[in-house]
C-alpha cells in the first residue's frame, strides 16, 4: 500500500516535472513574442502589417497563458473552458461593437 502510493507520487512528481518543462518553453516563447512585438514597433515597420501581427502575437501569448500556465489544456477543465469562452464571445462582440458602430 505504502510503496504503491509512493510510486504513484513518484509518477506524479515526474508528470509535474514534465509539465514544468513545457511551461518553461512556453515562457521562453512568450518572451520572444514580446520582443518581436516591441521591436516591430520600435523599428517602425509598416503600420498595415504591424497591427495584425501584434494582435496575432497577443492572442497566441494569451492562449499560452490560458492553456499552459492556467492549465486549461488539462482534463477537468471543460466547464471552465466553456464559461471562459462564453465570456470571450460576449467580450468579442462588445469590443467589436464599441469600435465599429460607435461614431467615428
Amino acid at each position: 500500500m505504502v510503496s504503491n502510493s509512493n510510486s504513484s507520487s513518484e509518477y506524479n512528481r515526474k508528470k509535474n516535472k514534465e509539465e514544468m518543462k513545457q511551461q518553461l518553453i512556453t515562457f521562453t516563447l512568450m518572451i520572444v513574442f514580446t520582443l518581436i512585438a516591441f521591436s516591430m514597433v520600435i523599428f517602425e515597420f509598416d503600420k498595415l502589417y504591424v497591427i495584425p501581427v501584434l494582435l496575432i502575437l497577443a492572442v497566441v501569448q494569451v492562449i499560452f497563458q490560458l492553456y499552459y500556465f492556467m492549465h486549461m489544456k488539462n482534463k477537468d477543465h471543460e466547464m471552465p473552458a466553456f464559461m471562459f469562452y462564453g465570456g470571450l464571445t460576449v467580450a468579442t462582440i462588445t469590443i467589436l461593437t464599441l469600435s465599429v458602430i460607435t461614431w467615428w
Binding site: M79, F84, L88, V90, T94, S99
Partner: peptide
Amino acid sequence: KFLAFWFFLGGETVLFASLFGTYLA
C-alpha cells in the same frame, strides 16, 4: 472554489472587454 473562480474570470473578461471597447472608441 476552482469552478467559481473560472466563472468569475469569464465575467472579468467581459468587464475588461467593456473597458477596452470604451478605450478604442
